[in-house]
Design a protein around this nucleic acid. Structure first.
Lengths: 230, 230
DNA sequence: ATTTATATATTTGGATCCAATATGAATGTT
DNA sequence: AACATTCATATTGGATCCAAATATATAAAT
């Protein structure tokens, strides 16, 4: 399959939003979304000229965005040939989730003692919303839920790393989240996590989160290794 | 202090080494080394024109290298003003070491069952060499020692992440490694780690590594918070 | 003398141009 | 027909050019 997600021309919206020095960031964001959402599939060639036309800019800001995308691990360059969307694999998925467990449990352990009741309440609100929400909203609400519990760790590097891992994971999530009864189990795990946070019980909270992430990863892993699709 | 490390002109060596599509990578490497080694100090402005002259190329490959450096966390851009070398701080150092513990213990846990006796022997050789080596060689030998024990985990994302963290840590290491009696303690810790690996004792090995990294971080942290220099 | 306004110069961000490499088609040879 | 060679084309990587923004210097006004 080819990079035909680049066909729709939305330069009208993008090109004149932030004038000087921000185009590349918007392009980066847009391409990242395209890869995560699956509009750009693994192996797709990213033609600079096509992207430039799509966004209504020259190739320069495109290149800038591509360099950063490569650093984030979403694409890879081969010299004089161009950039292709990084492949997906069950091993990669497993690795991402192993790293998420390590990074997010560290962040949570550091965050729990700093959590305010207000923040926990806010997380609970999000959880309540999430349980009523549609599948399209689930992703953002879920991300917000996790973020609010981890942010108080106040570790910018770690949080950026986690965000990158979650983006990487979302590439795999897309395929499966719609089909599975993942949501139900996730909700009760979130509830347990909130309880542990309320008691400021680091170990319990960390174990909840570890289990939560691991089970999510397991589910995806099984789904990916079974169905050879995507 | 300004970016006067950019004065020496070494374009003769760099410009014609790899012709098409590799300049940026060499420049990236060179700038990374300059930042880690301290030739480019925190807050230094990175003038594209100066760098272009230093490396004997146009501003284009410079920009490419800078974008990637930013993604690695070594510099940061402010729109229309340019790039500056990222600041250092005790909190950042602490964070790096917290992340190293999480990432490297994960890698080691996965690597230990895969380790061959040959690899452990090779690590021991490196350790023996290290104990006789000078301070200038210590850094590379130490890195090689850790790498050989972690590589068998076969997790490319994780290993790249660890490499980035070690580069980030090296920025702080530089200041202190010369002055401290860090080496002696490090050697015995390495020995203990090797022993645990020989027994294929995951938990013991992971605990050794955790302690090793934590103590290294502690030492640096104390040194950095005491002496307000650099 | 200090401050404000204006003009100038430097620098980044983006567009265009050119060279080197790779891709693909056409042609020729066996 | 299969394969190699040559030539045309497309694409990347790098250089140059231009515009927008910022910083600096100069002049004017209080």
């Amino acid at each position: 399959m080819n990079a035909n997600a680049t066909q729709r021309k939305d330069q009208g919206a993008n090109a004149h939003s932030g004038r000087h020095g921000e185009q590349a960031l918007e392009i980066l964001q847009a391409l990242r979304v395209d890869i995560i959402s699956g509009e750009l599939t693994a192996g797709s060639l990213l033609r600079q000229q096509l992207l430039a036309e799509r966004f209504g800019v020259s190739r320069m800001p495109i290149r800038e965005a591509l360099y950063r995308l490569e650093a984030e691990g979403f694409i890879s360059f081969t010299p004089n040939k161009g950039a292709v969307v990084a492949p997906v694999s069950a091993e990669d998925l497993r690795e991402i989730y192993e790293m998420r467990v390590a990074a997010e449990t560290l962040a949570l352990r550091l965050a729990v003692p700093e959590l305010t009741n207000t923040q926990i309440d806010r997380a609970e609100d999000l959880q309540i919303e999430m349980e009523k929400a549609s599948l399209t909203e689930f992703g953002t609400l879920n991300a917000a839920f996790h973020r609010i519990l981890l942010l108080p760790c106040a570790r910018p590097r770690l949080l950026a790393h986690i965000e990158n891992l979650e983006n990487a994971a979302d590439r795999y999530l897309r395929v499966t989240v719609a089909t599975l009864d993942y949501a139900g189990k996730s909700h009760s795990e979130h509830r347990a996590l909130l309880e542990a946070c309320r008691r400021r019980d680091q170990d319990a909270a960390v174990n909840c989160l570890r289990q939560h992430i691991e089970e999510g990863g397991e589910t995806l892993y099984r789904h990916l290794t079974q169905s050879a699709s995507a």
